[in-house]
Simulated scan of single mutants.
Amino acid sequence: MIDIAIVDYGMGNLRSVSKALEHVMPHASIVVTNDPIVVQKAARVVVPGQGAMPNCMHELTTRGLKQAVLEAAENKPFLGICIGLQMLFDESEEGNVNGLGILPGKVRHFPHDTMFDAEKNKLKVPHMGWNQVHQTIEHPLWEGIANDARFYFVHSYYVEAAHPEVTAAYTRYPTPFTCAVAKDNIFAVQFHPEKSHLAGLTLLSNFAKWEPESFA
């Protein structure tokens, strides 16, 4: 039995995600795979990703992994990281590409005319580095993580959810944007828990033990 499958569609630093999960779950069976059958058989699925959204969606489709990811998002604990969050939504401004359409909403580019801090200094895009994450709901994946804990970000786009109730946390850069979503068996984050030291490892550990109520 495979405990956790990390979906390999050729985009993202999968090695660091795998190593972080192996650290918090040393006795678990964790595989990085591009085989849709392995994804289907795994108890839990992680979809990371870095790079351009059009390339990610293209690779996911051409490698035959799209349907396996859609099924995982319906029937097992699912964790999306970075692009793995963005692709859950309907469409992205990056290349005007369609996402998976699992959650209603769009992926937006940080607007140039608002990218100034309180002292009117220009903020850089991509948003890169550590930032506070403000939790908006209670959730098993936040257990043991302080509200306003800092996580590591690297991105130029953010999700705009059509239904605000799916937002599990937000971050300010400089205005608030959704940085985590939760719905049933799905949890997804814009930041990189595998690069976020203790808070990130805690979140990954929580995911590895998470039993969504809808499956109870």
Results as ranks from 00 to 15, higher is better:
31 V>P: 01
51 G>M: 03
103 L>Y: 05
47 V>Q: 06
72 A>N: 00
206 N>G: 07
97 V>G: 08
48 P>A: 07
173 Y>S: 04
8 D>H: 03
46 V>N: 00
19 K>I: 06
12 G>T: 07
172 R>I: 07
126 P>S: 05
85 L>W: 04
108 R>V: 06
50 Q>W: 04
116 F>V: 13
95 G>H: 12
31 V>M: 11
10 G>L: 03
5 A>C: 10
171 T>S: 15
207 F>Q: 04
61 T>D: 13
215 F>V: 05
49 G>D: 05
59 E>Q: 14
216 A>Y: 13
76 K>G: 08
212 P>Y: 04
19 K>A: 14
99 G>V: 02
176 P>M: 01
70 L>Q: 14
73 A>G: 15
125 V>P: 07
149 A>K: 10
25 M>I: 08
137 I>D: 10
15 R>Y: 12
113 D>W: 09
216 A>S: 11
132 Q>V: 09
122 K>Q: 15
204 L>H: 08
102 I>D: 01
72 A>S: 15
56 C>I: 00
79 L>K: 09
13 N>C: 02
160 E>C: 08
152 Y>V: 00
77 P>F: 05
197 H>V: 09
54 P>N: 09
51 G>L: 01
48 P>S: 02
22 E>V: 10
32 V>C: 04
64 G>S: 03
113 D>K: 12
152 Y>K: 09
191 F>T: 01
177 F>E: 08
92 S>H: 02
135 Q>S: 12
131 N>R: 10
14 L>A: 05
46 V>G: 07
85 L>F: 02
96 N>R: 11
117 D>E: 11
138 E>R: 13
98 N>C: 11
85 L>Y: 02
44 R>A: 02
89 F>G: 00
7 V>Q: 08
59 E>V: 07
97 V>K: 11
65 L>E: 03
59 E>Y: 10
167 T>S: 11
190 Q>D: 01
176 P>A: 07
155 H>Q: 06
215 F>E: 07
197 H>G: 05
100 L>Y: 07
70 L>E: 14
46 V>H: 06
19 K>L: 14
98 N>F: 12
186 I>E: 05
10 G>Q: 01
29 S>C: 12
163 H>G: 00
209 K>T: 11
209 K>H: 14
201 L>V: 01
143 E>V: 09
157 Y>L: 00
215 F>L: 14
